[in-house]
Design a protein around this nucleic acid. Structure first.
Length: 428
DNA sequence: TCTGGGGTCCTAGGACCC
DNA sequence: TCTGGGGTCCTAGGACCC
């Protein structure tokens, strides 16, 4: 048996914990650059605000005081999830962190009767200790646990728990689940299934012909089908595997074709990715830089380019990575386009080892740079991002994304911790 | 005017080997 | 005119996830 614990409207819920007045109105959390809606309160969903709705469409409602918006505050959300995770682990230690707001737990070792009660208690505990509401779905496979979770959210809001432990409950969950809401069925597969006459999870799960499913939807589609029918095809992943690629790319606050600004942004992104590479003890063997305009631009102003470069010998040094990234950028940059976004993708990782260093000619010099990079990482980890920085990075950063509606870092920044003032009555 | 960011997995098809 | 068989590895691109 697997449980899926999923935080309800997570980003919105985090904002509401520390700004309780936000509970009085529908609200939306915006993407980076305040571009579009990425999280909505239940009331905002009821108003018909769609995931990905651009901000300029919401703006009239904000101005009229009908809804509130916040810029995304990942520092806050990460820290809140860390707290939720601790509470889950105390009850169900066999846990996989699946995303910033969801965790799977293997709960096979508990008997059915206690399981449902445990789930109800866990939910209450999370709400009491963090202020975050969650729903819990339980089933024989991860996909069924996901389906159970959706069922809890939709039909069992009072307990917030749904347990698929009988055929009858499986039928109820799957019959009331649109096929596009099945975990693993995206827009393309959903459209094909609806066209073929299978609009619900139940209809899809009831298809008899395996081969046809495989032919149409490849092995991943077949796995989903097995899982919906109670056969395990997707395993738990307790350890987080090493990353195969690390990427930083952001939209500019304002579109630009100014090479100096673009290069400056790119350097900052390299300096964002490089410490992540070093933290895992990896070296970068290939680097790609991409630069593009908005896809909503008119035809002759759309431009998208990328350049990939092998790095020999592989490196994790910020200075070297910046050097290569700038080389790539120079090859793809053309003036005259309203660029929206630049980014860097590092891949072809190898493990850092002494041997590689010895092969390199000026290894004394190199060892010094290595030390410097690691020291910078350490200082920045202790004292905050960009405390120590390379001169290649400017201070003004006019390209920076917009975060016009950012709330405080209530749990991770001492100046932002809420102060509770005793009422004057008690002061006397 | 204004539309996010960061990943993984799978397949088809080309290049290459003997 | 006719032009094998069997395999691996790599890459681009699509689909999917949150």
């Amino acid at each position: 048996m697997y449980a899926l614990i999923d935080c309800n409207n997570f980003y919105v819920s985090c904002e509401r914990v520390f700004q309780p007045w936000l509970r009085l109105k529908p609200g939306v959390v915006l993407s980076n650059n305040d571009g579009c809606a990425i999280a909505r309160s239940q009331e905002a969903k009821d108003l018909g605000i769609k995931m990905g709705a651009p901000f300029f469409e919401l703006e009239p409602m904000v101005k009229a005081g009908k809804i509130w918006v916040r810029s995304s505050n990942y520092t806050l959300y990460q820290d809140m999830m860390r707290r939720v995770t601790h509470i889950i682990q105390e009850m169900w230690p066999e846990m996989e962190i699946y995303s910033i707001d969801e965790s799977f737990c293997d709960v096979s070792m508990y008997d059915r009767f206690s399981l449902e009660l445990m789930a109800i208690e866990l939910r209450e505990r999370i709400l009491q200790f963090t202020g975050i509401p969650v729903c819990i779905g339980i089933g024989e496979t991860k996909t069924l646990a996901k389906a159970a979770n959706r069922t809890a959210k939709k039909h069992f809001k009072d307990t917030g728990v749904y347990f698929i432990d009988t055929e009858e409950r499986r039928r109820f969950a799957l019959q009331n689940l649109a096929v596009e809401d099945v975990w693993g069925i995206g827009p393309a597969k959903a459209a094909a299934l609806i066209r073929a006459g299978y609009p619900t999870a139940w209809a899809f799960a009831s298809i008899k012909n395996h081969e046809a499913i495989r032919d149409m939807f490849t092995i991943t589609g077949l796995r989903t089908w097995y899982e919906l029918n109670g056969t395990k095809a997707i395993q738990m992943e307790y350890e987080q595997p090493d990353k195969k690629g690390i990427c930083t790319g952001r939209s500019f606050g304002q579109k630009t074709d100014d090479y100096v600004q673009i290069e400056d942004a790119l350097c900052a992104y390299v300096l964002n990715s490089a410490p992540k590479v070093r933290e895992q003890g990896l070296l970068v063997g290939q680097l790609q830089v991409f630069l593009h305009t908005s896809r909503f631009e008119v035809n002759n102003r759309i431009k998208s380019a990328a350049y990939t470069m092998d790095i020999n010998p592989p490196t994790s040094l910020s200075q070297e990575l910046i050097h290569y990234a700038v080389e790539c950028l120079k090859r793809i940059y053309a003036p005259g386009y309203p660029y929206q976004k630049v980014g860097v993708f590092m891949t072809r990782f190898s493990k850092e080892s002494a041997g590689q260093l010895l092969l390199h000619e000026d290894n004394a010099n190199r060892a010094k740079k290595e030390k410097l990079s690691h020291l910078m990482d350490k200082i920045n980890k202790t004292w905050g991002k960009d405390t120590m920085r390379l001169a290649a990075m400017s201070y003004t950063q006019p390209w920076k994304a917009k975060h016009e509606f950012l709330s405080q870092k209530f749990t991770t920044r001492i100046e932002d911790v809420l102060v509770v003032k005793p009422h004057s009555f008690f002061m006397r």
